[in-house]
Design a protein around this nucleic acid. Structure first.
Length: 691
DNA sequence: ATCCCTCGAGTTCA
DNA sequence: CTCGAGGGAT
């Protein structure tokens, strides 16, 4: 990057950040998430680090946050309300503890108190003789806004402290004997995800733009002049610390005392005694953050011994004895370097964005699919744009927003090619999808081969895309049938293939020569025929007029069927029928099937179980199972006459879940569909009761 | 004609 | 996982 380019980018980043910061901090209303804003700020400070000559005093990196609004009267804090230093990775976290130890210049016992870091608004509450008298926001740390009236609408905040009975006083070790004349506590006001979603639904119903995050709405509600608005939003609040000295020795004590006074505290906090346990706690919640009813972006770690915490003092605007151990951001901003077009098995042209690599949810992302032409238009994306990306379902990278204000004018519009990038054939439209018109397109042949050997199809392990590419490029194979006539000698002469690996591949291929009718139909890659439809077809044609034992039998059967015949089959309508009909009448496909026969591929006789014990039931699998592969499990269900589906609906009989189940379990609960663990499923499978 | 349910296809990274 | 669209129900 040249100096001039850096200067321009720095300026644009500042402008963009300022705009969203204004929305965020002053209007409590933002169209982007904090993570997106952080990502932009991060790039800015990095650029400023490389080009310090461009740092200006008004840069967002130089600013101090949070000035109180004039609309509220001011409330001074008894002691400054500090912010927290962030750490993201284990090494940074360990470094923090080392810094503290060094600073105290004495070894301290690693005793920490951990709590979820809620995405909300920090508040301070003052009680006099047990009565809530004042509540305030953080403001600039020294002076905040007096929002007492609004805080009074929150049910989780007691208006009057609870007085413990003599009996319970004894059972709670640190419960104070008396209500102190003055008590100052701090905590967080937040919105549950559910309430946030409800408010956004309302908002959209009235034609407004949805809010980007619950923090903004919580802050906005508390900073309303009209308490009725705050009351209409069901805000929640946890308190987490006591400013007043009541003789508490640890942070854990403070939580206990808070509870005894009738404050609501977070139930998921934990006192631990080692760095490892903190890391475990943090990683646990990173994985399970969706289980919590509120948004969190990390965990707060504090030295549990108040003596240590206080001795550690303050560094900058943050206490040294505490850190925010944050999760990897789920959103980040980056730049689209280019857009290229991929050709799939069906000839579909898919645009893919090449990104400046960026870390999202702890994984470096460098590509993101753009699906189709419409998607690019919808986003208004140009090559060179600065974009916001996330991972759909925490897996698939996705561009969610284009920062048009970051444009320099050098961005190029992307033009979809009129010809296939792989072979130059004409491109034809098929709904929103563009396809290469040439059925023999090289890219399509290649993709079809990948599909042929994939799980679902012939399931030839050890024959991945890289190796297929290699074999094709070496001229060893031209189509799927050639795979079965590969010999050890063919392979072992290739560079980087030894005798042993050649042997393994050949053995694996030979072992998969016998295939079920269902998988054969999937492997062929007929448009609109996936696993489900293949299953239905297999049922329909097996023993149709003659038994099927080899690939050409399949060919014969389909040649006896008219379009009308095909449409008699369940789940087969005009489009699917047309596709199947045409496929088997294509001379190239006929030749392929004949070659498969010659190569020795055979079709397993189908165990046609009428009235298996799963008849009429539909199973959905999710997560990883220990004892058996997902494909095998599906097979077993089908053998017992059951159906397997990929999506949960009210027609689903059972959802079977293994390790790390996806969202399907949630959906099952919502639809009141029964769920089974792997163990329960196996028991059901081996039981002999016909239900 | 219209809605709802499902299926198919394509996609990323380690 | 998500989108688009095929198929079947209404």
């Amino acid at each position: 990057m040249t100096k001039n380019e850096a200067k321009e980018r720095i300026e644009r980043l500042r402008k963009t950040i300022d705009r969203y910061r204004y929305e965020y901090h002053v209007l409590d209303r933002s169209s982007i998430s904090d993570e997106a804003l952080d990502s932009l700020k991060h790039e800015l400070s990095e650029l400023e680090g490389r080009f310090p000559e461009f740092i200006t005093p008004d840069s967002p990196t130089q600013r101090v946050e949070g000035k109180p609004l004039d609309t509220f009267s001011k409330a001074s804090h008894e002691s400054p309300m500090l912010s927290l230093t962030d750490v993201f990775i284990e090494a940074e976290f360990r470094a923090w503890f080392e810094r503290v130890t060094n600073f105290l210049s004495r070894p301290i016992t690693p005793a920490f108190y951990c709590e979820p870091k809620i995405d909300g608004l920090a508040i301070e509450l003052v009680y006099e003789h047990g009565i809530f008298v004042q509540g305030s926001t953080r403001g600039n740390g020294l002076v905040g806004e007096d929002v007492t009236q609004n805080l009074k609408t929150i049910e989780a905040i007691p208006l009057k402290l609870k007085v413990e009975s003599e009996k319970s006083k004894n059972s709670i070790p640190h419960s104070p004997l008396h209500i102190p004349p003055r008590l100052v506590v701090r905590g967080e006001v937040f919105l549950t995800k559910k309430e946030f979603a409800r408010i956004n639904r309302e908002q959209e119903k009235h034609g407004g733009k949805p809010y980007a995050n619950p923090r903004n709405v919580a802050a906005g509600s508390i900073r309303q002049l009209d308490p009725k608005i705050a009351a209409s939003r069901k805000l929640d609040s946890y308190q987490y610390s006591i400013v007043t000295d009541l003789g508490q020795k640890t942070h854990e004590d403070e939580h206990e005392i808070l509870r005894s006074f009738g404050f609501k505290t977070n139930p998921d906090t934990k006192a631990v005694e080692s760095l490892e346990e903190v890391i475990k706690y943090r990683n646990y919640w990173e994985k399970h953050r969706d289980k919590l009813p509120y948004e969190i972006d990390g965990v707060v770690v504090i030295l549990n011994q108040n003596r240590d915490f206080e001795a550690a003092g303050v560094v900058g605007k943050a206490p040294r004895g505490s850190v925010a151990y944050k999760f990897a951001a789920r959103e980040a901003t980056t730049v689209v370097k280019d857009i290229h077009v991929q050709v799939g098995r069906t000839g579909a042209l898919t645009p893919v964005a090449e990104l400046e690599p960026v870390s999202v949810s702890g994984v470096t992302i460098s590509h993101a699919t753009l699906h189709n032409r419409d998607e690019i238009e919808r986003l208004g994306l140009k090559i060179g744009d600065t974009v916001l990306i996330s991972r759909a379902g925490d897996v698939i990278p996705k561009i969610i927003k284009v920062f048009t204000e970051m444009r320099t004018g050098k961005e190029r519009a992307f033009r979809f090619p009129d010809t296939c990038p792989a072979d130059g054939s004409k491109v034809v439209e098929d709904g929103v999808i563009l396809r290469c018109s040439n059925p023999n397109c090289g890219a399509r042949t290649r993709e079809s081969l990948y599909h042929f050997v994939s799980r679902g199809g012939f399931n030839i392990e050890g024959l991945g895309e890289k190796i297929i590419d290699r074999f094709m490029d070496e001229g060893l194979i031209g189509d799927a049938a050639d795979i079965f006539t590969l010999t050890k000698g063919d392979i072992e002469v290739l560079e980087r293939f030894g005798e042993k690996s050649a042997e393994n591949i050949v053995a694996e291929i030979a072992a998969k020569k016998e295939i079920s009718l269902l998988r054969l139909l999937v492997a062929l890659g007929i448009l609109h025929v996936g696993e489900e439809t293949a299953g239905v077809l297999a049922q329909a044609i097996f023993n149709f007029q003659f038994p099927i034992s080899k690939p050409t039998d399949v060919l014969k059967v389909f040649h006896t069927m008219s379009l009308e015949n095909l449409q008699q089959i369940r789940d087969v309508g005009p489009k699917v029928a047309e596709s199947i009909y045409g496929w088997f009448r294509d001379p190239r496909h006929r030749k392929l099937i004949e070659k498969l026969d010659v190569a020795g591929v055979t079709v397993q006789p189908m165990k046609l179980k009428t009235g298996g014990k799963f008849k009429g039931m539909t199973f959905v699998f999710t997560g990883t199972m220990e004892s058996l592969e997902r494909e095998d499990a599906k097979e077993k269900v089908r053998e017992e006459g059951g159906d397997v589906s990929e999506s949960v609906s009210k027609k689903t009989t059972y959802v079977v879940f293994g390790e790390n189940p996806g969202s399907k379990v949630e959906k099952a609960k919502k639809l009141e569909v029964k769920t089974l663990t792997e163990h329960e499923f196996l028991k059901l499978l081996t039981s002999h009761t016909n239900t």
